[in-house]
Design a binder for these strands. Structure first.
Length: 513
RNA sequence: CGGGGAGUAGCGCAGCCCGGUAGCGCAUCUGCUUUGGGAGCAGAGGGUCGCAGGUUCGAAUCCUGUCUCCCCGACCA
């Protein structure tokens, strides 16, 4: 029995879905908007997304990809060109049909029947078609290739069931779109983007992921190959945290992206697309969150250190504030994880001991409380969010000289960044089962009632078409899905769990978000 | 989109069955006390009861519709 008085009312192990929702609210990240499937992202949540944007954008630009912006609306006629793509998205589309409102005579407004659009516009669910259209004009010669574009944008998919950050009708993302002269070049770009996402997730978000290729049934509509990074959440489910697609020439054919080669012949370009979305914020919560709220990895924390002066609303406050301001300035002059330290002096009135818990729930990596006696002694009281409690169930403050804290702040932040990754990585590795040799054993593995159903990595023969569909159905009956064929998986041995044929590779099976 | 549950103050809830002045806890504000770690006492402010119709002398409460959220399913780059 624990005497700890946690900052949340719901524990992960009691109700993971409810816990997730409480973290989103308690960490002040987002709230309901009143519009189905759409959320208001609040400053702390959006600040985390902005940090993700900044770090990923730098990686994208470092690869020579340029940012551009394409329209929100796509003419319906443009969208219908790539058959598989259309089939994949048609049933979840928002459509604009009118351009004016008129009074309904009862004090309300209705779309003006006189203002119906000749051709409806769809709200982009992704931008392959509209960017492909631009590429068809921008690509003429082999000298125009490769064409490497990215856009940061919102997209809309009319989801049947939504969850904050994980699946919303409108979400924010980046979508990279590239065109290449050859299959090899395009595939190399696909893999570069995949590796970029892996490094971004692991290094910047402390999120251990497994990069690999999606099986045929999980491919992006119209893609030749789909690759993903998969992360394990604290309930053992898998979350696809980023995807990279080699699109072959089918989108180039649909959009007319052709170039003249060195011999003067007309060739179809090979295209790719790749994306990461605000879903990543959900992955962060479900990977690093604990029973006291979120824990934000320092690299993406909007504020890495929060200073809380213990104000008493008396004459001593001025001196205490000056002491804290000096502390803030000396920290802000330091560099951690390659950037100036982001430090907030939270001097709003109120008891520091009470406001501390707001920052615990938000997951600020370091919380520093400073009282009059600390000031006199030249000390600070430091609370690390990644190790909150003492054995006795009290907040684990480290009282240390101010100068020591300042001198070690960068190292401490790097240590938290690394520690969160190590913790999540150890948890995942402890819950990936690689020794399952039969379908029955697979079913047993997932039938066991345990906190982490985890993942299974099993040999398979890579069936396709109807044979694959049959396997997918068998898995669906167990609420299981294929995740990906990990790049780093060992050589396949033995028989395919699903067909009995000699295995050709190893694939991850898991419950998934 | 199918089945189930829910919407009352910023948050969590009671009241509804059986119609009759809108309640509790936390939070907020004020005062006093307290002051090394999530303070105590007293007082105060804050709600067209999701929205729209209907029944009724009278609706948070009964009826109809609708919107949103949660859970299960189907769907899901």
């Amino acid at each position: 029995m624990s005497a700890i008085r946690h900052a949340l009312s719901i524990k992960r192990q009691d109700d993971f879905a409810q816990w997730y929702q409480e973290v989103v609210a308690a960490a002040d990240m987002a709230e309901e908007s009143g519009v189905r499937g759409c959320m208001v992202i609040k400053p702390w949540g959006y600040g985390i997304w902005e940090r993700m944007q900044r770090l990923l954008d730098a990686r994208i630009k470092a690869a020579g990809v340029q940012n551009a912006y394409f329209p929100l609306f796509i003419p319906l006629g443009n969208f219908v060109r790539e058959a598989a793509h259309v089939e994949g998205f048609a049933k979840e589309m928002a459509v604009v049909t009118h351009h004016r409102l008129i009074s309904d005579g009862k004090g309300g407004l209705i779309p003006d029947p006189e203002a119906k659009l000749e051709e409806p516009l769809i709200v982009r669910p992704t931008s392959e078609t509209i960017i492909g259209d631009a590429m068809s004009r921008w690509v003429q010669s082999w000298r125009d290739l490769p064409l490497l574009l990215n856009q940061w944008a919102n997209v809309v998919r009319w989801e049947m069931r939504t969850r904050m950050f994980l699946r919303t009708s409108e979400f924010l993302w980046q979508e990279g779109h590239t065109a290449h002269a050859t299959r090899d070049d395009a595939r190399a770009e696909t893999m570069r983007a995949l590796e970029m996402y892996r490094a971004f997730a692991e290094d910047d978000l402390s999120l251990p992921v497994i990069a690999g290729e999606k099986p045929e049934n999980e491919r992006f509509p119209g893609a030749a190959e789909t690759w993903s990074i998969e992360a394990m959440m604290q309930d053992g489910k898998a979350l696809q945290a980023g995807t990279s697609h080699y699109l072959g020439t089918s989108f180039a054919e649909a959009a007319g992206i052709r170039y003249q080669d060195r011999e003067g012949g007309q060739q179809l370009a090979h295209t790719t697309s790749w994306g990461v979305s605000t879903r990543m914020v959900g992955a962060l919560i479900m990977t690093h969150g604990d029973d006291d709220g979120l824990r934000v990895p320092p690299a993406v924390a909007p504020q890495q250190i929060v200073i809380l002066p213990m104000l008493r609303e008396d004459d001593g406050d001025a001196a205490l504030l000056a002491y804290c301001e000096a502390l803030r300035a000396s920290l802000a002059g330091q560099t951690a994880l390659g950037e100036p330290i982001r430090v907030l002096l939270d001097s709003r009135p109120g008891k520091a001991a009470a406001r501390r818990w707001d920052w615990v729930r938000r997951g600020a990596p370091l919380i520093v409380e400073v009282g009059p006696r600390d000031m006199t002694e030249g000390k600070v009281a430091v609370l690390r969010r990644d190790r909150l409690w003492t054995e006795a169930g009290k907040p684990d403050f480290a009282f240390m000289p101010r100068e020591s804290f300042v001198a070690e702040a960068a190292i401490t932040l790097a240590s938290i960044q690394q520690g969160l990754h190590a913790e999540a990585h150890a948890r995942r590795e402890a819950n990936v089962e690689r020794g399952i040799a039969s379908f029955e054993a697979l079913a047993d593995f997932f039938a066991a009632d345990k906190r982490y159903p985890g993942w299974a990595e099993v040999p398979w023969a890579r069936p396709t078409g109807a044979a694959l569909d049959a396997v997918v159905e068998r898995l669906k009956a167990l609420k299981l899905t294929f995740r990906n064929v990990p790049l780093g998986a060992g050589p396949a041995e033995g028989a395919c769990l699903f067909t009995g044929e000699p295995a050709v590779e190893r694939i991850l099976v898991a419950r998934a978000y």
